[in-house]
Design a protein around this nucleic acid. Sequence first.
DNA 1: CCCGAGGTTTAGTCGCGTCTAACTTTTTGT
DNA 2: ACAAAAAGTTAGACGCGACTAAACCTCGGG
Lengths: 221, 221
Amino acid sequence: MSTVTGAVQDYAKAIYSLGARENEPVSTSALAGRLGVSAASASAMVKRLSELGLVTHEPYRGVELTARGRDVALGVLRHHRLLETYLAEQLDVPWDRVHEEAEKLEHVISEDLINRMAAKLQDPTHDPHGDPIPTADLAIDDAPTRSLDSLEAGERGTFVRVSDSDPEMLRYLHERGIGIGDSFEVIERQPFQGPLTVRFGKRSHVLGGALAGAMRVGESS
Amino acid sequence: MSTVTGAVQDYAKAIYSLGARENEPVSTSALAGRLGVSAASASAMVKRLSELGLVTHEPYRGVELTARGRDVALGVLRHHRLLETYLAEQLDVPWDRVHEEAEKLEHVISEDLINRMAAKLQDPTHDPHGDPIPTADLAIDDAPTRSLDSLEAGERGTFVRVSDSDPEMLRYLHERGIGIGDSFEVIERQPFQGPLTVRFGKRSHVLGGALAGAMRVGESS
DNA sequence: CCCGAGGTTTAGTCGCGTCTAACTTTTTGT
DNA sequence: ACAAAAAGTTAGACGCGACTAAACCTCGGG
């Protein structure tokens, strides 16, 4: 009955993050790619999730989370992001490494312990990468954000969020002194989806490619 | 190769704690009893541990840890006891509940994180139940202790250690204000392995049975 | 319209860690 | 000393979560 194993949680989380934008159905191969398993494995697990009532699955058509499935995903997302925040703030784990630590701990930590951590941190709303943390009753504020590379020269903004799953990127940004919450101005933009020149404080940086795509930005504030 | 799974660690830990006194061989049924599995399961896992080079096993004669097996056991014991200490001190988890939390976390926490916790706690030598914590290079100070019920009337001592695995006992002691490090005097002892009357500070308590057996004591200091 | 490419599912296997049932070895009691 | 009891092992099964190989849709291009 209580067969919501760690693997099941991982699948729910992956489906959530792949299909979050307006409950789009998620393809088996996208799921397999995200989780680093074969398509056959993903297909088998989708069947399991479906039997558990966590997803609806139309064969050959993709998979969608049910309300219960969404709660499973948000629960583990809460664990993940609170752990990341706790590790970064209380144990000085560098922000490019908190993700993999949290990935393992999120499935075994108790509700009680997670809530103690949240209390100690005074119920943070965002993790070190700017991702929103679901509340204890699984509400999440996941407003869409713009990508840095959608900006034009002259625009100003705040760097609000970046994917936690690429340590290289995080290390790269950290080395250059760029962090969540920093304000910036786009100085220049190369044509043909070229890189942007962006000024953070006194220093200017050339940011392009996947990096500029992964950096999410908000209003100038 | 790296097939030292969580279950394997649990078996190594159980063998260590059952056979710690002078490397006595541990029986399959003792192991099964400790881990709450069938004798057949324990027998199968002993075979696995043996193939991994963590134990020597003479069929029908019991099992003993090899040097490598001892290191596996001490490694997980270090994790367990540091986690207990961390949870108790940093997150105010009551001491009768830290054991079960640590039991799950000990297998997935990274060496780096454990060492960060140890540093934050300033490398504690004992956990909240008085059990010694192995150092990072797996040295442990596990001097044998006397049991409270081995004392005679008039003897004084310090309560130094108690098993972490029985929350009921821990809660009982906590409710009566008895904690690790407290000094006491045995006021009276009933004959025929009867209970002892022991004074801690101003209050006297009648302690007997499994409780007096589980409480370990040291010199008066 | 049909046929092939590519995505999806099924079939069959494997390792881990558990179980029960049956069998073997050791210990114990008369 | 020997039979019965207890302890230990083997045999066969199962659920989980992965794999490869093969069969099966679906959809787009000729």
